[in-house]
Design a protein around this nucleic acid. Structure first.
Length: 507
RNA sequence: GGGCCGCUAGCUCAAUUGGCAGAGCAACUGACUCUUAAUCAGUUGGUUCAGGGUUCGAGUCCCUGGCGGCUCACCA
């Protein structure tokens, strides 16, 4: 391994520690206060100012050195822990000449240290720790990124997120926000009698969405498995079994392109409620997004670009047909065949290829005319049946299903419908999908015979919802791409360096 | 997969028409006992993503490849 000059110098410092009998990777630390607790404790003592007689308790803090300034026989440094930062102040005459020399020579930015002493305020008013003793906890061999500009290189930010996190504090805040989003979501559903379940990631047959799967192989069973593209069909089996309210937060995997709104592995929330329907789920989704937003942001508004939207229910509800008709002047119901709809869509200015199938033209109209304008929280309802093989038809219009999608800030947050529980109709829809598969559509769902069997035992009327957690976090955290809310986004592997050994074996 | 753009010191970025590869931070040596992007003086540090080509001379121009970003396509 080639060492840069900086790395070589830091390794020499490790050796210098060991030569003087100090292990630079300490077995343990003895923290008494986080940096935040130390500051709070000092402020509290200060407020009771006349307690000057009380002996001040010793403070021991730990953390990473993130700033280091020395002037003459004094050192100022900042250490950072999970709670915040605290300034250290070390004097040669108080620390001792040897220890002070070590501090100057052997300690670097990025090292984890433990410092003990008394708190005080500097002349400029900053609460600081007057260091009586300092100890190396973990010597960093790589220098941190530049302190002022942080880490800018996008590729390194994603590939080496640990560097991004240590250099760019706002990134840590985004992922704290992500954690709060998921916690708030669980709390919302738990409070309503939902139970959290886990269904298979490895599935012998995939389904529940229109997508291409990842394929893998189990050696002992000598069998192909698919990584799930959705958990829908398993969760509905649980309703057949008698659970009334279930949810799952898990990774789904779809073997598709990557862009700002799509990741090959992403976190999906799905929840199903027996004896509800899409009307009930609309109210639930509105309430959930509003509550999660309050929990995460402390208010009911979200900044979207230069606009502010309020997610307080009720949201605007519009049928998909009306929305498309109003914004594109095309009524797809008046054009039930592909050539007619294609012509109308193109006349309206849509950019659509000639061989696009009818349902996808509808989808294109939605995408090109409607979606970009759904900035205010909106529920788009009632989709054509061809787009929704798992949803129940509307009673008064069998060409449409009871389905809705929530949109905020132009982002599609999820998908919901009154679940199809008629096994015969479900089988017919699967068979329709199968015809599409046979015709070469490798995203159409395969027939899941066991799921039909399950429905034949009876599934109660049910409302179901899927919410893309990553997209929700992206919206709440104001991040421009999905990759900025995924800690380790999928990246192409770098050219392997491990085959150097292979090369050396070549004749 | 197509188009456009990018890749230079550990990090952030320069480099004129093709003419000695630079600065700031970090590091190293020194000065300075209340600094905080500390300051001051000095020093070190380069496979300019890789390979090939053109040229007296390539970070710069051409070709091939790698990785990334944006965008279109695909895709909830």
């Amino acid at each position: 391994m080639d060492l840069s000059e900086l790395q070589a110098i830091r390794r020499e410092k490790v050796e210098a520690f060991r030569a003087s009998g100090v292990e630079p990777y300490a077995l343990r630390s003895e923290r008494t206060h986080t940096t935040l607790e130390a500051i709070r404790a000092f402020e509290t003592r200060e407020a009771v100012a006349d307690g000057a007689d009380d002996p001040e308790p010793p403070i021991v803090v730990v953390g990473r050195i993130v700033g280091f300034r020395h002037m003459g026989k004094t050192v100022f440094a900042h250490v950072e822990d999970g709670a915040g930062r605290l300034q250290l102040y070390a004097r040669k005459d108080e620390l001792g000449a040897d220890e002070y020399a070590d501090l100057l020579k052997l300690y670097d930015l990025g090292d984890f240290v433990q410092a003990s002493g008394q708190l005080f305020r500097t002349r400029t008013g900053e609460i600081s720790l007057r260091v009586a003793e300092i100890r190396m906890l973990s010597k960093a061999l790589n220098a941190p990124p530049e302190k002022w500009h942080g880490l800018q290189d996008v590729e390194i930010r994603y590939r080496q997120r640990y560097v991004d996190l240590m250099a760019n504090p706002e990134v840590r805040r985004v992922f704290e926000m992500r954690a709060r989003t998921i916690t708030a979501t669980r709390r919302f559903l738990d409070a309503r009698g939902y139970i959290e379940v886990e269904t298979p990631t490895l599935q012998p047959l995939y389904g529940g969405a229109a997508a291409r799967p990842f394929t893998t192989h189990h050696n002992a069973l000598n069998q192909t498995f698919y990584l799930r593209i959705a958990d829908e069909l398993y969760l509905k089996r649980l309703l057949v079994g008698g659970f009334e309210r279930v949810y799952e937060i898990c990774k789904d995997f779809r073997n598709e392109g990557i862009d700002r709104n799509h990741s090959p592995e992403f976190t999906m929330l799905e929840f199903y409620e027996a004896y509800s329907d899409y009307q009930g789920m609309m109210e639930l989704v509105e309430a959930m997004i509003a509550e999660v937003t309050r929990d995460v942001l402390g208010c009911s508004t979200i900044e979207v670009g230069d606009r502010t939207v309020d997610v307080t229910p009720p949201w605007t509800r519009r049928s998909m047909r009306d929305a498309i008709r109003d914004l594109s002047r095309v009524d797809y119901v008046a054009h039930p065949d592909q050539p007619s709809l294609l012509a109308a869509a193109r006349a309206a200015g849509a950019d659509i290829e000639a061989d696009t199938v009818w349902p996808r033209i509808v989808d294109e109209l939605l995408k090109q005319f409607v979606r970009p304008r759904l900035i205010e929280p909106t529920l788009l309802i009632d989709y054509p049946v061809a787009l929704s093989p798992l949803a129940k038809r509307k009673a008064d219009d069998p060409t449409h299903v009871e389905r809705f999608q929530p949109f905020v800030g132009g982002v599609e947050l999820g998908n919901s419908f009154t679940e199809l529980n008629d096994p015969i109709d479900q089988l017919a829809r699967f068979q329709e999908q199968q015809r599409d598969r046979d015709a070469g559509d490798d995203e159409a769902m395969p027939i899941d015979a066991d799921f039909i069997t399950a429905l034949m035992y009876g599934m109660p009327p049910t409302g179901g919802v899927g919410i893309g957690i990553d997209r929700l976090v992206m919206l709440l955290a104001g991040q421009p791409t999905l990759r900025d809310v995924i800690l380790f986004p999928a990246m192409r592997a770098l050219p392997s360096t491990s085959d150097e050994g292979v090369d050396s074996h070549r004749e």
